[in-house]
Nucleic acid binder design. Structure first.
Length: 207
DNA sequence: TAGGCCATCTGGTCCT
DNA sequence: AGGACCAGATGGCCTA
């Protein structure tokens, strides 16, 4: 069986760029409301080190691609019986990813390519949700960007702690101070190191 | 250099 | 039937 020819995006030359800029040490933790609960609506528009979700990190310079762009590509695909080879052999300015990718040259399944676009779009929306979640969990200003798994675990621990504060009826600040003194003992089995969590919260209160 | 993290592709399965 | 969702595979980047 004949092998399909492949196009190597690597040949298009790549310009390196950081996925994420180094964190500015001056960036402050987002202050939490006095009751320790975040107002989502107020936070939505706020900037945090990790909140600026765009695709520019993946698509450098003029090659930024958004969900809308992916929509356009998908529509273009769905509307064409024949797949334009220009969509498969990505031009330099429209390079999908700096990673080494081997895309079969035409004839290539139009449906498969459209499915890839939908999948990328889906992952983008998931990642934007992760970015939004990162805005709502306490992080140190010098801390590097939380990974997805750490974001989830910290969010779980944070919610558990907030729940404990509500149940205790204590003032959040004094509750956190108490946790700092005695060590936080949550009945929840939060994987995230809870003492680390209280340290984060105490930092928020005192800075 | 190994390991962690991530983006992407892909084929399978589920759902509408 | 087609889209959404998922998990495995792959390979690049970064850091200790």
């Amino acid at each position: 069986m004949m092998e399909e020819p492949f196009y190597d995006f690597e040949q298009d030359s790549t310009s390196d760029f950081p996925f994420w800029s180094p964190m500015d040490s001056n960036i402050q933790l987002q202050p939490q409301p006095e009751n320790g609960l975040s107002d989502c609506s107020s936070l939505t528009g706020q900037l945090s080190p990790w909140s600026s979700f765009t695709c520019q990190s993946m698509f450098p310079d003029d090659a930024q691609i958004s969900l809308t762009d992916l929509d356009g590509q998908a529509l273009q695909l769905e509307g064409s019986a024949e797949l334009d080879s220009s969509l498969l052999v990505q031009p330099k300015a429209n390079k999908l990813h700096k990673h080494h990718r081997l895309i079969p040259a035409p004839p290539y399944k139009v449906q498969r390519y459209a499915a890839n676009i939908r999948e990328r779009k889906r992952m983008l929306s998931i990642n934007s949700a992760f970015d939004e979640l990162r805005c709502h969990v306490p992080t140190f200003p010098y801390e590097k960007r939380l990974s997805k798994i750490d974001t989830l675990r910290l969010a779980i621990a944070y919610i558990a702690l907030l729940n404990d504060i509500l149940i205790s009826g204590c003032h959040p600040k004094s509750y956190v101070e108490q946790c700092m003194k005695n060590g936080y003992k949550s009945h929840k089995n939060a994987i995230w190191n809870t003492s680390d969590l209280t340290t984060r919260l105490s930092w928020i209160k005192w800075n």
